[in-house]
Design a protein around this nucleic acid. Structure first.
Length: 555
RNA sequence: GCCCCCGUAGCUCAACUGGACAGAGCGAUAGACUUCUAAUCUAUAGGUUGCAGGUUCGAGUCCUGCCGGGGGUGCCA
């Protein structure tokens, strides 16, 4: 709010200066107004003078001085305007304006920090989408944390968000799953079994097989291999899916839609998409296969849609899937993929164009993988090797809050080194506890206030002026940043930046706690500080909620 | 070979798409509980932003070339 107001003051001032002949006619373009890094530089700063000086052939400090002089006084909002450095214009907000954020928090409650930059645009975030052929591993935890927080923060920023999980319940991976169980089934009955190429070597497959033996004995021994695999797929993948759902539920991630790949085949959407592509001249036959002309849209080579054996590729169903998403009326669809799929992006974009959807509606967020260590030794995460660390195990060891916060702390394009031993050892000093502790501390103050019989009614007009110390004002300023942070994280798709804000706010609160006693004999001061502290609690609860971490009342 | 990410304090990472003296946490050192929670706070130390050029008023950020790490480059998903 203050930002827009100040921006227009600057625009007016430039126009006025030009009108009075102090500045040559110049189009300033978009006025950049930033939060300065250093406190002495005020609450807001603009570099227009620097940007414009070169074009009008004047010294940038002189230009800054002219603009600053022409700024209309707005004492309700701004207490001071000054020129600094090479020509920055710094704005200091009026203390009363800074304090007014508290009324806003009280009024908006859980809706504080909400924005309407999203303008209700319908956006789907699809994430995790792991094949239901094994338990979720630690890497999936990262996508779960990232996708869910992104969805939450975009929702808070006024987007209309839907969370979706794409279930790959069809194709090669499924078949390998069935064949792997079949092999272990034979072994469990003392027969030689052989894992298929690309089969799953995890212990969980052995467990599944022995459970089948326990329940059904050698009932399936005489079946042909393919029929047995088929049967095991149908018996076991729903269980696996259910267990994945359970894990995600424990992570606190709730999907709106679970979309089945099989459904695309059943509904004929795949055939439909392929026909459309072929009819439109976007796909052609060669060497017995059907190819999509993706090079036409910048891909390196054309890609196969239907293999020579008649089986559609994963790419084919993905095209139908994305077409289905677009038909559901989303303005934007966001896919979160592991970086190991990044070679897939150009062809996916190409297919969006070929289907007439427009590649600009698809956004792919690539997350670097999680590298797992155990006591400094790398652990392979592949489902094909025996040892995997599951997301369930991780949650069990470090807790959901620490896990989610940890996953979200770094940018999605930085690889994450996750040492399990270290995570366990470090968990008590994980920043998540720092932020949660601030929340718990406030709750403790409020409890104490209640017990001490202090007057907890809202402060009378004017009483807020008692909030004057640096610690108090810094804290209130940080509260006012929440809306911008939400917008920033949402528009730039960088949910990890929420953690930094949470830590800043917590840190300022802890400093305030040191300097300012809340519950005192001074009733007016007590009312004012309780009011402030409640607002901070509200903001912390909101941010932690967006991150997917609990806000405990006691620790 | 080609393509995409990354390289910033001892460690893990920020730096608001080109701005002011590159910031936090952890770790280190030295302090602070008779108090609404010390899971906290305060202070100090720590840097040629991988290297070399270039672009401009101004570069961690943009361009070029190297070096190092990760990923991709399937009629796999």
């Amino acid at each position: 709010m203050s930002k827009e107001q100040i921006t227009s003051l600057i625009e007016e001032s430039i126009r006025a200066a030009i009108g009075e002949g102090k500045l040559p006619p110049v189009e300033p373009g978009r006025i950049e107004l930033d939060r300065p890094k250093r406190k002495e530089h005020g609450d807001w700063a603009t570099n227009v003078a620097l940007a414009v000086a070169g074009r009008v052939g004047m010294n940038s400090r002189d230009v800054a001085a002219i603009i600053a002089e022409s700024i209309k006084p707005a004492p309700d909002i701004i207490s001071r305007v000054e020129v600094a450095g090479p020509g920055f214009i710094n704005f200091h907000l009026a203390p009363a304006f800074v304090r007014s954020i508290l009324y806003e928090v009280a009024e908006k409650g859980k809706k504080f920090g909400m924005s309407d930059v999203g303008a209700g645009r319908k956006v789907q975030v699809e994430f995790v989408s792991a094949n239901p052929v094994g338990p979720l591993h630690v890497g999936h935890g990262r996508w779960a944390a990232l996708g869910d927080a992104l969805a939450s923060v975009m929702s808070h920023a006024g987007y209309n968000i839907e969370r979706e999980y794409y279930v790959n319940d069809y194709g090669t991976q499924m078949l390998n799953f069935g064949l792997s169980i079949s092999a272990r089934y034979l072994e469990a009955l003392g027969r030689p079994g052989e894992l298929p190429e690309g089969g799953y070597a995890g212990q969980y497959i052995v467990d599944i097989a022995s459970r089948i033996v326990a329940e059904h004995g050698d009932e399936y021994l005489e079946l042909p291999e393919s029929a047995r695999a088929e049967l095991f797929i149908e018996m076991e993948y729903p269980r696996m899916l259910e267990s994945i759902m359970g894990t995600l539920e424990r992570m606190g991630v709730v999907f709106d839609v679970w979309f089945s790949e099989r459904e695309l085949y059943r509904s004929g959407e795949i055939a439909e998409a392929l026909e459309a592509l072929e009819a439109g001249g976007k796909a052609y036959r060669k060497d017995g296969a059907l190819w999509l002309h993706t090079t036409e849209y910048g891909d390196e080579k054309d890609r196969v849609l239907v293999r020579a054996n008649g089986e559609p590729t994963y790419f084919a169903s993905d095209i139908a899937y994305h077409h289905d998403k677009m038909r559901r009326g989303f303005d934007t669809i966001i896919d979160i993929w592991g970086a190991d799929h990044h070679g897939y992006v150009p062809r996916m974009n190409a297919s969006m164009e070929a289907m007439g959807s427009g590649a600009e509606h698809l956004e792919v967020i690539l997350g670097q993988l999680v590298k797992l260590f155990r006591g400094g030794e790398p652990v392979t995460m592949s489902k094909r090797t025996g040892e995997i660390v599951t997301l369930d195990e991780l949650i069990e060891e470090v807790g959901v809050d620490a896990a989610r916060y940890f996953f979200l702390q770094r940018s999605n394009d930085s690889p994450l080194d996750f040492d399990i031993e270290l995570a366990k050892r470090e968990s008590p000093e994980n920043p998540v506890f720092y932020v949660q502790y601030a929340h718990a501390r406030i709750c403790s103050i409020l409890r104490y206030a209640g017990e001490s019989g202090a007057d907890l009614s809202d402060p009378a007009p004017g009483e807020l002026e008692l909030l004057q110390t640096e610690a108090e004002m810094d804290l209130l300023r940080k509260l006012a940043e929440l809306e911008e942070i939400v917008e920033f994280c949402a528009e730039r798709r960088v949910p990890h930046r929420l953690t930094g804000y949470a830590e800043d706010l917590a840190s300022l609160f802890h400093a305030f706690y040191r300097d300012c006693r809340v519950i005192t004999e001074d009733e007016c001061m007590t009312r004012a500080r309780v009011f402030a502290v409640r607002a901070v609690r509200q903001a912390l609860e909101i941010v932690l909620g967006l991150i997917g971490v609990s806000a405990p009342e006691k620790m």
